[in-house]
């Protein structure tokens, strides 16, 4: 293509000559201007990226271990605003990752990360983490920010979750988990509070079941915080 266009330009240039050259060439050749070297480089880079993305996946351990820097070794989080994801159902993790990837689920950083994985890679990560053993979170030795479970707040929280019927989905005091429902028992107080704030945040529209949205919208920040203390306090 490129060579052909150059030939045409040379021909036209030769025929028309001098100051007339540029305009008639444009008129005679309605095709877009020849791609610049920068464009060609960009196209090659994009092609290589697309190929890299589609290239054979690493195994589950290799892929999932890259999560540990934020979510802890084998998904057991040591950071109070990062969720523990060890032992969560594979289908649930896959589903959340796909929502991060499509942008349906708002995030600060997970969207940028989730987009880096193919469906197969996401599946491998989810399967690997689902086989890890859940452990109730415990604050790292140097954590300044982790909120400790407050039993009095947890008692209030129990009433809140009973009146809001949270237990209809988050059964067994938040221990139950399935494809749509994450385990919340033994999770970080801070993480649960942040997430419930997100659920209420009109700027975010986090995907959530209608009945959960209704329940959460009715609750005050204080009530939500107490519910977080209740669930975080369960083993």
């Amino acid at each position: 293509m490129q060579r052909k266009r150059i030939h045409m330009m040379m021909l036209a240039g030769g025929l028309l000559g001098g100051m007339l050259m540029a305009m008639p060439v444009m008129a005679a050749d309605p095709a877009p201007a020849a791609p610049s070297a920068a464009d060609a480089e960009k196209a090659a880079k994009e092609k290589a990226l697309a190929e890299a993305k589609a290239a054979a996946p690493a195994d589950g351990a290799m892929l999932a271990n890259t999560c540990a820097g934020c979510h802890g070794t084998n998904g057991v989080s040591a950071g109070p605003s990062m969720p523990s994801i060890a032992g969560m159902p594979a289908k649930y993790l896959e589903h959340i990752m796909s929502e991060f990837q499509s942008g349906k689920r708002p995030s600060t950083i997970m969207g940028r990360i989730a987009k880096g994985y193919t469906e197969e890679e996401t599946k491998r990560i989810a399967e690997y983490l689902s086989k890890a053993k859940w452990q109730p979170v415990k604050s790292g030795p140097n954590s300044l920010t982790a909120t400790k479970v407050d039993e009095a707040k947890g008692k209030k929280g129990k009433k809140v979750i009973e009146s809001s019927k949270c237990g209809k989905c988050h059964e067994d005091e938040g221990v139950t988990q399935d494809e749509d429902t994450p385990r919340v028992a033994g999770q970080w107080v801070d993480y649960l509070v942040i997430k419930m704030q997100d659920f209420k945040n009109e700027h975010l529209s986090v995907p959530q079941p209608e009945k959960m949205k209704k329940a959460i919208d009715k609750l005050s920040a204080e009530e939500l915080e107490s519910a977080a203390h209740f669930y975080a306090g369960q083993k």
Partner: peptide, 26 residues
Amino acid sequence: AMDFTRNQEALYNESWYQSIMADTFS
């Protein structure tokens, strides 16, 4: 990003540190 997001990323920074240090030393 809005202020609450900048604020969350500041919180995540400290949690990032706790988890990566646990991944490193425990």
